[in-house]
């Protein structure tokens, strides 16, 4: 199992479109992937779960991946956050 802390750095936070990109990026992975924010843990492959986190700019998240391809899944997830979901800001 892998865990990684990350900060939401795109200006609009985890809104529907950013959440959709996250879910799409994770769809091909077998690993179970979760995001925790303010004590609430959600399935990162569920767009409703991710949106309901209400994670805005600056939110400190904990990412957790558990499964045969956990390393690749975690890398894909971190890459998306670091690219600010390709929103440019």
């Amino acid at each position: 199992m892998l865990e990684r802390d990350i900060t939401v750095s795109n200006r609009l936070g985890l809104h529907a479109r950013a959440s959709a990109k996250l879910v799409q990026a994770l769809q091909g992975f077998q690993a179970n992937i979760f995001i925790t924010y303010r004590g609430k843990e959600v399935n990162a492959k569920s767009i409703m779960g991710v949106m309901m986190l209400a994670a805005g700019l600056g939110a400190q998240l904990r990412l957790r991946a558990d499964g045969p391809d956990e390393e690749a899944a975690m890398a894909a997830m971190v890459d998306l956050f670091e690219r600010k979901f390709d929103e440019g800001q």
């Binding site: 529907a16 479109r17 959440s19 959709a20 879910v23 799409q24 569920s46 767009i47 409703m48 779960g49």
Partner: peptide, 16 residues
């Protein structure tokens, strides 16, 4: 398009 993709995923959300 990004909105439509997101809305389509919401409709496909198992929990919803």
């Amino acid at each position: 398009g990004d909105f439509l993709e997101a809305h389509g995923l919401i409709l496909a959300d198992r929990d919803l």
